[in-house]
Amino acid sequence: MSPAGAPGPLDVRIARKRVASVAGLEVEILSNLAFRLDAGEVGALIGPSGCGKSTAMRIVAGLDSAFEGAVARPQGPLGMVFQEPRLLPWRSVEDNIRLAAPDIGEAEFAALLKRLSLADHRAHFPSELSLGLARRVALARAFAVRPSLLLLDEPFVSLDAPLARALRGELLALVGERAVTTVLVTHDVEEAIRLADRIFVLSPRPARVIGEIRVRPPREGMSAAEARSIKADIDALSP
């Protein structure tokens, strides 16, 4: 699975993460949350909403260093897709992508836009885009940096089902081609089964990994029975 010269595995060991609650008390939201992905693997973090998945993701991204533990990231650029597209509203689609990935060449840039059906929207501003299109731009931006680690925080939440399905297909193809180590946060079991090599099931707060399930590729060609059995495994683990 790992390509030659891979930038190393992702090794996440969060011993403890506390935040101040509204009442001023310290609340522990992550406790012994640990998982590991080899280079090029896709891992899904799945758990009840509000269990601290996004907090874990911010720690993995290096955006939050106030925790006990250690995170070893693959060497190289980080690509991230947040729950909201987080585009710069005063910049065009093209500028939004190029600001994050200044080194991308025109051919690669054009190909990426085409892949994500964004070719007609190059010069548009984020206010002119639908949510689905804006999410595509966020995906394009994350891939444009040629990431060695890709973090996707519920990238398809609040999209209607057919659109989410289409985007998931595009994402799957891109991830497969690039062999990039990917962490996907989701509360959608189907999405996790469809996209991930490994699924890590999280407990409610304070979140920890209560089970790991390996999904055997090819994911696309998985039979309904296999998918059902994995889903049953996850349901058995879920509290």
């Binding site: 911010r58 991204a61 955006l63 650029p77 980080l78 690509g79 991230m80 947040f82 909201e84 987080r86 710069l88 005063w90 910049r91 600001l99 994050a100 931006r141 940096v145 973090l151």
Partner: peptide
């Protein structure tokens, strides 16, 4: 703060952050 986080995730330099994220 969400845009600031995005800029940090994509490793914007301080100058780029000022010019493209903060000043606008």
């Amino acid at each position: 703060p969400a845009l600031d986080e995005m800029a940090r995730a994509f490793a914007f330099s301080p100058w780029k952050r000022l010019r493209h994220v903060v000043l606008p």
